[in-house]
Amino acid sequence: MFPFAFEWVPEATRYVFMGSLYAVLISLIIIMHYCVIRAFLDLICPKKNHNNH
C-alpha cells in the first residue's frame, strides 16, 4: 500500500492506481477541512450571513 512496504513493485499501474487513491483521499480531507475551517471562521467573525442556500 505504501512505497516503503517491502512488496511495493515500482511499476506504472501501481503508481497510477495508488496515486489515484491518495489523490481522492487527499481531496476529501481537504474538502472536509475547508468546510470545517470556513464554518469556524463564520462563527468567530459572523459578518457573512447565508441563510439562503
Binding site: V24, S27, L28, I31, Y34, C35, V36, R38, A39, F40, D42, L43, P46, H50, H53
Partner: peptide, 25 residues
C-alpha cells in the same frame, strides 16, 4: 447551532466537487 449551520452551507457549496469525485470513483 451556527457552526453546524455554516458547515452544512459550505458542504453544499463544495457539493459539485464532491459529486465529481463520486462520479470518478
Amino acid at each position: 447551532f451556527r457552526f453546524f449551520h455554516g458547515m452544512a452551507h459550505h458542504l453544499h457549496g463544495a457539493m459539485p466537487t464532491i459529486a465529481a469525485i463520486g462520479v470518478f470513483l
